[in-house]
């Protein structure tokens, strides 16, 4: 379960910061894939390289890849005013095509019996195992560290505060001189960075090679995790545990009760919907006595 929690935690913390600033980056899936591709470039191009620097470099490259992919969306939003929702999602579809292109051509393992997958990574490229006997690796630590950083950033720093004001009251933010463009760039870059990191951790972790099935919808589950966690870094920590449990429960249900995996998606979708409806009750209880115009976020 910790194995599943790691990537979910990583990939949900980033976009959640954006959602708080009302920057709807829903392309975490694409940023995850690009992170995986960037990270794989080391083992694919330098398959015999050795040394303890390789797996950290892999993670860094992954973060870079995700951030670059998100930067396209940010540029398009800031420069051309295009909806970041649509652009980031479209880029996810493109990312998957890039992945297919690489795996069917340039990056295909020459000894892989023609399967669309890359070479297996060398030992130094694989993330060190954290708990002996399991497959839990250092990416969980990275995810926890990132959650801590997200907490400090959003709850304690001025920059994080600016982002939140931009999300809650865009006009107030612009009167206060907080740049909207900068908030968009920052939100998307952080989101891309985290998603790319998760992608890198996935290829260099339990999978150990770049495959077509590298993205199992983490990017979309991340949206759910982010909201279930109330967009709060600590809430997301709890939510990613819950969601990891659900997807593992789904795997087990599939095996033991012969239920299709799709039931997990149905469950996740309804979960989010119910949560969003429930939020209304919470909000109304607070706002009922003083219905000031424009008080709602």
């Amino acid at each position: 379960m910790l194995l599943k929690t790691g990537p979910l935690l990583l990939i949900a913390q980033g976009p959640a910061i954006g959602y708080r600033a009302k920057v709807f980056n829903i392309g975490a899936e694409g940023q995850f894939v690009l992170g995986a591709i960037f990270a794989s470039s080391i083992p694919v191009w330098f398959p015999i390289a050795q040394g303890p620097w390789i797996w950290p470099a892999l993670l860094l490259l992954g973060a870079l890849g995700g951030a670059l992919w998100a930067a396209i969306t940010a540029f398009w939003r800031v420069r051309f005013n295009a909806s970041e929702i649509l652009v980031s999602l479209m880029l996810s579809f493109v990312a998957i095509q890039i992945l297919n292109y690489l795996l069917l051509g340039l990056w295909k393992d020459p000894y892989g019996f023609n399967f669309p997958q890359s070479v297996m990574f060398q030992t130094d490229a694989i993330l060190p195992i954290l708990i002996p006997g399991t497959r839990v690796n250092v990416s969980l630590l990275v995810a926890l560290a990132l959650s801590g950083a997200a907490f400090l950033f959003m709850q304690r720093s001025f920059l994080g505060y600016k982002l939140q004001v931009g999300g809650l009251a865009p006009r107030a933010a612009s009167y206060a001189g907080f740049s909207e463009g900068r908030a968009i760039w920052l939100s998307l870059l952080i989101g891309g960075l985290a998603a790319g990191l998760a992608g890198a951790a996935e290829v260099a972790g339990p999978v150990g090679q770049l495959q077509r099935s590298i993205s199992t919808g983490y990017g979309y589950t991340a949206i759910i995790v982010a909201y279930l966690g109330g967009l709060h870094p600590l809430g997301i920590l709890a939510a990613s545990f819950v969601m990891a449990a659900i997807s593992i429960g789904g795997d087990n249900a599939m095996v033991s009760a012969n239920l299709p995996l799709a039931i997990v998606r149905v469950f996740q979708g309804s979960f989010l919907l119910f949560y969003l409806c429930a939020v209304t009750f919470a909000r109304y209880r607070f706002e009922w006595p003083r219905p000031a115009p424009g008080a709602r976020a």
Partner: peptide
């Protein structure tokens, strides 16, 4: 988004 995920599922 939730409806999208639900519909796909």
């Amino acid at each position: 988004l939730a409806i999208g995920i639900l519909g796909q599922g």
